[in-house]
């Protein structure tokens, strides 16, 4: 056997375990969901049969699906830019030499290390009418009592804020690492040129952070569509589906209603949606990103 062939076999063998896992737990389930979405849900006496696009038609006529989709888009729109901006702001701040910065960094990062379920329970009490933390603060200014999670107008915002609070600290760590990788000579040069703090950020720091921004953005998008724990604890999708997000609805259809075929259909929509976003991000944004 030639050296080249050995190297090839060697390479594939090294790839095999990871590839097998990926195929078994990622690609196959996705493919299976896709196939299943064209069949009816199997019942004890009625095995699954091919029904073409019926599930998709049912989905288009399902008001809760549309509600979940629009909720999810608003949720994404609310969480992604805000959490990224906040993360950047915090990172730039704690990157400077300020007194007690370790403490501040730790404080910002705390939400990330707390378990999701515990976090949701803490926020449940923040939002509680009358004696919740939020009520006590607004009460000082004489504001009227608000039932944040119990009203259709505010529930989704309330959930959005929790997600931002939870994610900003996590993204901050990436920005902080990236900021520290920027050579200090650039800052010194800018200072000699007399560039203002803002110009330095806009012309030097921000462009150099673009790869990180891209990475963070992809994560933020995925997280926006992966949100489910907080919903389960805080609202269970209520009031009247005001906080039902796509993934939560899929769980409900799949394991509450046991309509697995319809859940597979919804899953396909979520997959296509995420694939599209990833495509745009990698295909378009990456070309505009400057790597050092």
């Amino acid at each position: 056997m030639t050296n080249r062939a050995t190297a090839t076999i060697h390479g594939w063998l090294l790839l095999l375990p990871a590839m097998a896992c990926l195929a078994l737990f990622t690609h196959w389930p996705a493919l299976a969901s896709f196939i299943e979405s064209f069949y009816s849900t199997p019942k004890a006496r009625r095995p699954a049969r091919f029904i073409g696009l019926d599930n998709y038609e049912q989905m288009l006529a399902d008001p809760i699906f549309w509600k979940a989709l629009s909720n999810n888009l608003w949720f994404a729109l609310g969480t992604i830019p805000t959490s990224i901006a906040l993360a950047l702001l915090m990172a730039v701040w704690v990157n400077d030499r300020i007194a007690g910065r370790t403490l501040v960094r730790m404080a910002y990062f705390t939400p990330t290390i707390l378990p999701m379920i515990a976090v949701a329970n803490i926020w449940l009490f923040f939002y509680t009418p009358q004696y919740g933390l939020l009520e006590q603060i607004t009460g000082l200014f004489g504001a009227r009592s608000t039932n944040w999670l119990g009203s259709q107008d505010t529930a989704l915002y309330a959930i959005t804020i929790v997600a931002i609070w939870k994610e900003a600290g996590f993204f901050m760590i990436f920005y902080l690492a990236a900021l520290q990788a920027i050579p200090p000579s650039l800052g010194e040069a800018a200072a000699i040129e007399g560039a203002s703090r803002w110009t330095f950020f806009r012309r030097i720091q921000f462009p150099l952070l673009m790869p990180t921004t891209l990475f963070v953005l992809i994560n933020a998008v995925i997280n926006a569509f992966r949100m489910v724990d907080h919903i389960v604890v805080m609202t269970r999708g209520g009031p009247d589906n005001a906080t039902t997000l796509l993934l939560y609805y899929i769980y409900q259809v799949g394991f509450g209603f046991w309509d697995t075929a319809y859940a597979a259909t919804l899953t396909c929509v979520l997959l296509v949606l995420l694939a599209l976003v990833a495509f745009v991000q990698y295909g378009w944004l990456e070309r505009r990103t400057h790597y050092q």
């Binding site: 449940l124 009490f125 509680t128 009418p129 009358q130 039932n147 119990g150 009203s151 209520g238």
Partner: peptide
Amino acid sequence: PPGIVEWGTTPRD
């Protein structure tokens, strides 16, 4: 109370 009253916090209330 107006709106939705949370099951979990009702005993606490």
